[in-house]
Design a protein around this nucleic acid. Sequence first.
DNA 1: GTGAAAGCGCTAACAC
DNA 2: GTGTTAGCGCTTTCAC
Lengths: 355, 355
Amino acid sequence: MNIYDIAKLSGVSIATVSRVVNGSPRVSEKTKQKVLAVIEESEYTPNVFARGLGLNSMKTIGILCPDISDQYMAEAVSHLEKRMHQYGYDCILGCSGSRQAAREHHTRLLLSKRIDALILVGSLFAGSGKDQEETEYLREAAKQVPVFLINGYVEGENIYCSYGDDCQGAYDVTKALIRRGKKRILFLYDSQTYSARQKLIGYETALADAGCPIRGELKFYLRPLGSGSMEESCFVDSVPGTMQGKIHYTREMLLAHRTLEFDSVFACNDSLAVGALKYALAKGLSVPEELSVAGYNNSMMAVCCEPELTSVDNQVKQLCNDAIDRMLEVLDGKTDVEQDHKVPCRIVKRCTTDF
Amino acid sequence: MNIYDIAKLSGVSIATVSRVVNGSPRVSEKTKQKVLAVIEESEYTPNVFARGLGLNSMKTIGILCPDISDQYMAEAVSHLEKRMHQYGYDCILGCSGSRQAAREHHTRLLLSKRIDALILVGSLFAGSGKDQEETEYLREAAKQVPVFLINGYVEGENIYCSYGDDCQGAYDVTKALIRRGKKRILFLYDSQTYSARQKLIGYETALADAGCPIRGELKFYLRPLGSGSMEESCFVDSVPGTMQGKIHYTREMLLAHRTLEFDSVFACNDSLAVGALKYALAKGLSVPEELSVAGYNNSMMAVCCEPELTSVDNQVKQLCNDAIDRMLEVLDGKTDVEQDHKVPCRIVKRCTTDF
DNA sequence: GTGAAAGCGCTAACAC
DNA sequence: GTGTTAGCGCTTTCAC
């Protein structure tokens, strides 16, 4: 069943059928009804490939993330898909893992599918910050379609960024811990993404502002599980139980560093924070009295654990909305769309801290 | 840059370029190299729409799930995407929510994108079991493309199912609880999916086999949060903190039923189980002595909570692999591909039970 | 081994 | 308001 069949059956030309299908006003009500009836009864569906060929667009956007099984990204993608669907767009999903080469490869592949825009979820896409070169592929991609970053910042034409103010979030938490008399705040992280760097800056600034020393040994980097190379900077290759493993791994690593002293933990994500909680349990430390813990992302984990976890919510949903709003403008041909968009974080206080 | 440009630049016809691009053997090594060089240097990418139009396929598969922000489905989708990508397929993701109408709508839309196959993740797609009518749209869809169900069972031509043996999983857990002297095992569920029904059957069978009475009041249905209608049979519309809310909601509902007596809980998913754990904490019940708890899905939540949760792992990854293996066969034109595939579950014992 | 040409099914510019 | 027709960029027969 193609447009010719419908035209024949309705006794009109293909142009008229096309007009009806696309809701053009230049069709008489009568012919419209007739054509619609034929379409209905013959269950005709326009061929999207042919349409795509003509319009050079299939109304699809590409969504790329390192790992959809990560709670944070899943939530973002969930939200993005739902809203894009409302606007009649379909989403091609790519999970690129954490390696630079794979990111570039996936990006190229998505572009070759002639997507109308590209959304990148996760701070990882903004590079490790060591090298401008790392994000060159994004500027390259942006020459073809508008690129939107969720929770990351990259400068470039046709690149639009939405990110939480993780620096401020980390600052506020650290400040609060200091105010409650904490002297040795452990900064716990497992990746060197844009977001992690912002958190570190916030942490260090808060210490400096309070006149506290910044101690190198309190910046505790947990090499991701199962990662041989530096490239592998996240827990993304879903080895069975990886996420589960991460929690216990964190506990074990903290236990292993017997000489390391700290009275509180600021963790860059909730699984690290839960790991710290498990550590406290193993050591018999009371939380929050002997060990205060704060996490990041305000995920489900924050309420699963016991005591429940204070966590910074970086408002993914709003980041997604901001990105989409601007995307619609860009796709609509608007110029002067704001490229850079920062959203304040929100600290969700629970029982693992006493501030 | 299109195939004509490349042809001109290489001094050959478009047919030859096409052959080179598609790796046809009927090209001399010399011309091949020449064309390849031109393609490389001009950064030519074949237009997928035109190709799709000719071949009536763009090598994409549709993946539909009720909610990608659900850990279980996210893991499935993650795995599906990774493997399909290896085989050169792209994935269009749809999140349909839990309403029947939305499921049908999303399915139709995906089909209209001329996907090569459709994968449905989640037991919800197998219907509530009340009505054959509910799954009619799947049989309809299967007339166009092969349909694959992950964790659900629907009969029909061109429909292929992979599902865990949730009946056996529930049976085993219940049996183990009985063996440890538990007399009143609460069956906690929040949806009436295929999977939930299987679990209920397993639960009841185990009781019957042990000569224990099946008590209606111990089958505890938790109406999903924010759901007005029966249609809304899952926690899928991501209201802020829905998943988080589910845990506390479970605790509150259990606390509210003051007269209900039970010494153990078998929960149909981990968040319900964690809710039961929170209930035990609120009541001052020791786990597992005074209250044994077992969950389902062996998610990250199972190790976040304290004590850590015994949970049934229904092996999503294997379900996905089985589905993909068969999909590749079907797409390859093979006939007599096994339609029905059941995978045994695995009980992961942790601290919330003493068996 | 290579080229010419006929589709694939649609959109849109142009004529009436 | 409706029809005619020229692309869109590719694959694939069919000649040579």
